[in-house]
């Protein structure tokens, strides 16, 4: 693999991951209640184990969060 492609992949992944991690923090403590009311009273450990998944799948969850927020 060419070095320039490798660097581009690295930077893309790093940016995606960093954005995902920031989103995941906000999501597991706030947004999660909007898309799944059952998570309202869930404990800290439950929220922490969702972090990696939320950081990886953040575009899907962000869309859900926005859609859920639009509904009254």
């Amino acid at each position: 693999m060419a070095d320039s492609i490798a660097l581009a992949i690295l930077w893309t992944l790093a940016t995606y991951g960093a954005a995902g991690f920031c989103f995941a923090l906000a999501f597991v403590f706030r947004g999660i209640h909007c898309i799944d009311p059952a998570a309202e009273h869930a404990g800290l450990s439950f929220r922490i184990i969702l972090l990696p998944g939320a950081a990886a799948l953040w575009p899907i969850l962000l869309r859900r969060w926005i859609l859920a927020g639009a509904k009254p």
Partner: peptide, 11 residues
């Protein structure tokens, strides 16, 4: 990362 039932319901 998606093994919890939360993901099963929400994905």
């Amino acid at each position: 990362a998606t093994s919890h039932d939360f993901w099963l319901r929400n994905l």
